[in-house]
Nucleic acid binder design. Structure first.
Lengths: 326, 326
DNA sequence: CTGAAAGCGCTTACAG
DNA sequence: CTGAAAGCGCTTACAG
């Protein structure tokens, strides 16, 4: 390349990076040759020299979950034009796979990492410091000091409980995810705290593996227990709840009210449309991307959570409890 | 690292790669120091030397579409343990973004590329040869000679038509995606060919932008035209069709039968459950990964399509046409 | 069995 | 304004 233009490699480098002084004539020649040859600078050489790759790893628990797909897209959008590329990795919510994926990522010397820790993740500050800049999203790692982007889980779930109570429900349940997930604990606490605010109200809680099938079983049991309102842990669990309502022969919302967590396309398609606590995924991804850009540009960024509000979207799946009530 | 173990860099290299001869004693020392330091070889240095990065780019049209998320996961699974990492990129079905993403990817000198071309993609053989090994999936690029993994679109859509005809439908429609997509053309041909096999059958076809909103409008028009059976182009379009059926006040399957294309979780949740032509996404991803591994290992791989069968999954959304029929 | 030398493509001082 | 030199971390011959 440099030879074809009749100049040295570092002159090409100067033209490409806009550093140092280059005569207008030389610059034009170099740019012409670049164009003619379809030359593209080798990012590997550049990274070796810089000892950092302009790449941000994104490790999520389950790429099949639309929430994470939307999150990836939002981060990508925020980082567009910054020169960073994204390397998306999936760990199937397996702590061992997570560790293996991070090892692989680390070998590329990335500039940063956005991580949604797996359930039962054993990641420590020590593991993460090799990544330079780390932001965690949605789930929080115990004892790890990195900036985190999270939803106001407790308040958001609380607003779902208040909605059910306002409609007159007193026997309500929440179908949760795995005990080990920080989101499960936060949403459970929010649920129980909100229920406790209403003396006549009784709250039932079930933990599941977070799959549709698991949630369906748990929801079936809860419905047998004469509950009239059910809150879902996430979109998949909400699928399981709706499925259980259908197979139990109960009607929604006449017999059972349902509120989901995290919006999904099918929720507006279902009859009744499913009311839901929606998480601002785009905002969360953009914020995570911004935090990473700040850190990468040397700004000091405090560790700890950035809380983003979940919002109750009212549709048709909540009504006054009528089950056995007439 | 090498210094800490009291050996030269290339001895460490030999231990790490299992090449050449290393005494058992030296090997043990080196491994101990690697372990103690948490040393991880720098993939960048290795790639620079090899002039190829052990990385496979995966460029999809829309990461928010669960089909592509499942595809990515299947490719990842097939490539697990091969030493290749995946770099997932999204182009939002925009040919310009696609080109930009590929430029970025190219700067990393990846070993291969799996691409689902964007609608209206202008990619040529010339653009793609910089990637060494390329496999296209789902959509096919006109005039580009690479191995491709595709569904038997025509036959699969044909089987949906046959199903409707077998139930007695004669006025049927298909809501398609964008004209420029190869999948649209193939599915349209399959639809029209199957309809043509039945003289009493009339087939109506509508092109859309492939979004739920666009499909909803088109499906609404088609339902006004007294069609009794509708076939969807993909999962999102099928959402639009189901939504249009709901808002039109018609009942499925009593008034209108619906068959989707590409399975999605909500389809079993909807009442009636939606019958669908399912694509074997896992198989497609595994095959794409396999083709790439074959090419990377120097096997000669013929360009051209590998056809994988779509399968009709019968659920509850098809019945005999009753609309105005009694 | 092990090390010194060279080079992958780039950028950062340093000379001129 | 431009180039020769050095070095990022690795691996591939080549000596010993």
């Amino acid at each position: 390349m440099a030879r074809a233009a009749g100049v040295s490699a570092q002159t090409v480098s100067r033209v490409l990076n806009g550093t140092g002084q280059v005569s207008e004539k030389t610059r034009a020649t170099v740019l012409a040759v670049i164009e003619a040859q379809g030359y593209r600078p080798n990012a590997v050489g550049r990274s070796l020299r810089a000892s950092r790759t302009p790449m941000v790893g994104v490790l999520v628990a389950d790429i099949g979950n639309p929430f994470y797909a939307r999150l990836h897209r939002a981060i990508e959008r925020r980082l567009a034009g910054s020169g960073f590329s994204l390397m998306l990795m999936n760990c199937d919510d397996d702590a061992l796979v997570e560790r293996r994926q991070l090892e692989l990522l680390r070998s590329y010397r990335p500039t940063g990492l956005v991580v949604v820790p797996s359930v039962g993740s054993s990641l420590s500050d020590g593991d993460l410091q090799a990544f330079g800049h780390v932001v965690s999203v949605s789930r929080v790692l115990e004892g790890v000091h990195v900036p985190a982007v999270v939803t106001n889980e407790r308040e958001a779930v609380g607003s779902a409980v208040e909605e059910l109570v306002a409609y007159g429900h007193s026997e309500i349940a929440m179908i949760l995810g795995p005990r080990e997930a920080s989101t499960t604990r936060a949403r459970e606490e929010g649920f129980l705290a909100a229920v406790a605010r209403h003396p006549r109200c009784r709250g039932l809680v079930r933990h599941t593996d977070g799959t549709r099938a698991g949630a369906e079983v748990a929801a079936g049991e809860v419905l047998d227990a004469e509950v009239t309102g059910v809150v879902g842990f996430n979109a998949l669990v909400t699928e399981g709840i709706v499925s259980a309502v259908l197979t139990s022969g109960l009607r929604c919302p006449e017999d059972v009210s349902v509120i989901g967590f995290t919006d999904a396309g099918w929720m507006t398609l279902h009859r009744p449309a499913i009311s839901v606590i929606d998480q601002p995924v785009e905002e969360m991804g953009a914020l995570a991307g911004q935090l990473l850009l700040d850190m990468a540009s040397g700004k000091s960024v405090e560790p700890g959570p950035r809380v983003v509000p979940g919002v109750l979207v009212r549709r048709g799946s909540v009504a006054a409890p009528g089950r056995g009530g007439k």
